[in-house]
Design a protein around this nucleic acid. Sequence first.
DNA 1: ATTTTTGCCCAAAGCGCTTTGAACGCCACC
DNA 2: GGTGGCGTTCAAAGCGCTTTGGGCAAAAAT
Lengths: 344, 344
Amino acid sequence: MNLKELSALLNLSQTTVSRALNGYPEVSKSTRQRVLQMAQKHHYRPNARASSLATGRTMTIGHVIPQHSSHDVGNPVFGEFIAGASQVYSANGYELLLTIAEQLNEEDTYRNMAAGATVDGVIVHSPRRQDPRVQLLQEIGLPFVIHGRVAETTLEYSWIDTNNRRAFRQATKLLLDLGHRQIALINGPEELTYAWLRRQGYEQALHDAGLTPHPDRLSSDELTETHGYRAASAMLAAHQQPPSAFLVSSYVVALGVRRAIAHAGLRMGEDISVIIHDDELSFFQNNDPEPQFTATRSSVREAGKLAAQMLLDTIDDLAGAPRTTMLEAQLTIGKSTGPFRQSA
Amino acid sequence: MNLKELSALLNLSQTTVSRALNGYPEVSKSTRQRVLQMAQKHHYRPNARASSLATGRTMTIGHVIPQHSSHDVGNPVFGEFIAGASQVYSANGYELLLTIAEQLNEEDTYRNMAAGATVDGVIVHSPRRQDPRVQLLQEIGLPFVIHGRVAETTLEYSWIDTNNRRAFRQATKLLLDLGHRQIALINGPEELTYAWLRRQGYEQALHDAGLTPHPDRLSSDELTETHGYRAASAMLAAHQQPPSAFLVSSYVVALGVRRAIAHAGLRMGEDISVIIHDDELSFFQNNDPEPQFTATRSSVREAGKLAAQMLLDTIDDLAGAPRTTMLEAQLTIGKSTGPFRQSA
DNA sequence: ATTTTTGCCCAAAGCGCTTTGAACGCCACC
DNA sequence: GGTGGCGTTCAAAGCGCTTTGGGCAAAAAT
């Protein structure tokens, strides 16, 4: 069933039917009624490709997830973020186009989206410290919002981010206040801006306390359980000055850290303190019913919603200045932290 | 840059340019060369909406993820499956449209996709034991492949699934052979076919051994760490005949089970045996370097690839009979199983 | 009573592509 | 020398929608 057939059925022109369906005022109440009923009855939906060809808007948003390593795709953070964004899209009649792009093809991907008119805008994931995508997207004129930030650029662009530096500075300070001195950071890949900022916050807090960060107490890798286990095991086995506290970049990694602590015969929250960054993933709830881990909390699903809304706003007002939103993480005390104990 | 402009630049008709770009034979070698060069130079990409309007094919596949509960969206299994499927799509020039649909709007979603011509076919996720989607999709004529199966239907349709029943029957049998008699099953939501089949396999193996399944040793809920912890804790605290072995429906849930076992002062693999189903999620590797958990393994990423290929094949040959593929899980021995011990 | 406005509706153009049907020059063939 | 075939190119139609620029009758204003 297409517009032509529907209008033939109604003895109306396509113009009138189209206007009736799209809520234009120059249609009488009774015919609009008739049109809507008939459309409903025959499950009529306008052909999205045709209308987007006519209007120049595709009503779809692209999400491009770069595939640095085999791990990045399966990262549950993306699922959660997209779940949030998706709510905003469906509430506004938009669709979501998901692309997993190898870094090689990345430029191609964005160019295709712009020139091929497949999307009205994109959400950029996993920004790196230096990231050519900002310039590329501005050149080809595709509206975008970055989830996170690019560290080394002078260009202005729209982004939404959590204040990673402050969060990790606060968390480190809390551990210092509890008396910990050997504090380890188990971080994500540091070419990604968020991980780099977290490390900055961590080091800043150490410096504020007159301490120097020690390279043996720093691990940077994919956010997997395995990474957490291996890094924490190795550090705990150190002969001199093993850490008494861990800062961990995600809940998933912390599961591995917890396993390592248990494996070493230590008790989390007593012998060893742990603070995690909690993205509030729906599949990994950190409140059961009280928080397992002391955490800097920031809902990535909420970030997805806000990013999506920001992008839609940008598309509606292309001339506007770049929009930015900084979310503050909440430091929540859980069972995994306690005062420094000599025993460890 | 569009076709018209490009052809003007080349002093050729749109016909010829289009044919040159799409590899049709009736174009001389030299002009094709010229066309390709000019297209490259100006970053020309055909407008996907326009060409799909002309050809009737959209070159995009929809994935519809039903949102039963807040948890389902963030399920890392979907990310992994989609990562696999995505590879096949990009290799074949397809895009991926992701929709997260509340069950209420589900029918609408599919109808929109078909009538709105937004996709050429869909992958159906999370099939339930009774699922109206098979009939709906056949009625509206939208090609589809189901990841999993619908239990109660006589309709024929294309699917790809892991042999969940056999896998869990084998796993249960292994535990029985190890001497375990009190075996608990921590399962997913049983309105979903896969969970129901797993339970069938589990019960079948018990029956084969002359045992009756006990309702206190069965838990069915979302596949979260929390679920695993709560269920296992409760079961281990039982006064009479606490389980000496757990069958667990996912790695993530098993992390909670492991926590409960440790919390009860027991040792996994010695006092308590655990077998998990391992989807081989890239973020939750069960080999570190040897498998942590004894597991029935089946790569969900591979399933994604196969499902995508199956759907593309179906689209290319709409008249063909439904295609089906059953994957067999591999039972892999890890550190989490051992012979029954009285001590527990 | 005439003009203007208003309300409602329509025909046709156009979005950017693919594809059909035809044309044109050139060579080969009888 | 006419006919057929081949290789190459083009003009134009059409995919299904939106939107521009009227048109026509009834109501309002003059």
